[in-house]
């Protein structure tokens, strides 16, 4: 459970972004989390209220978008979801693939004024 420390970092980043851009109110914070990221969305949501307490984001809603962990098969070029396919190409069963995404942990955007 390292979500809290990381979310506190996110809040600091957003606060400094808001300050720089003269934003006074943030309605929603949108994060993107890859399926392979060590950040577990459920825990991010659980510790979010503690992380924003007393900050500019105190009343800001949190929205999380999950990014799929897709891979491309080196053998037949099939693009597939790594977790669903259990790390094997569903077409040719090759275990040689390149990861296309899924490790992300991004601050996507804020809805603010």
């Amino acid at each position: 459970m390292h979500e809290l420390g990381v979310i506190i970092e996110v809040v600091k980043k957003v606060e400094s972004f808001a300050k720089k851009n003269r934003i006074v109110e943030i309605d929603t914070l949108v994060l993107q989390i890859g399926e392979l990221s060590s950040m577990v969305p459920k825990y991010v949501e659980a510790c979010y209220p503690a992380a924003v307490d007393g900050t500019l984001l105190q009343d800001t809603k949190l929205k999380i978008e999950i990014l799929p962990c897709n891979a491309i098969c080196k053998n037949c070029n099939k693009v597939f979801n790594l977790i669903e396919a259990q790390k094997k190409c569903p077409d040719c069963e090759s275990e040689e693939w390149d990861l296309l995404g899924g490790n992300e942990f991004l601050i996507k955007e804020i809805i603010a004024c």
């Binding site: 990381v6 970092e9 996110v10 980043k13 957003v14 972004f17 851009n21 934003i23 992300e104 942990f105 991004l106 601050i107 996507k108 955007e109 804020i110 809805i111 603010a112």
Partner: peptide, 8 residues
């Protein structure tokens, strides 16, 4: 909507 797109 203000895009930030920053890796944490």
């Amino acid at each position: 909507v203000i895009e930030i797109k920053e890796s944490v």
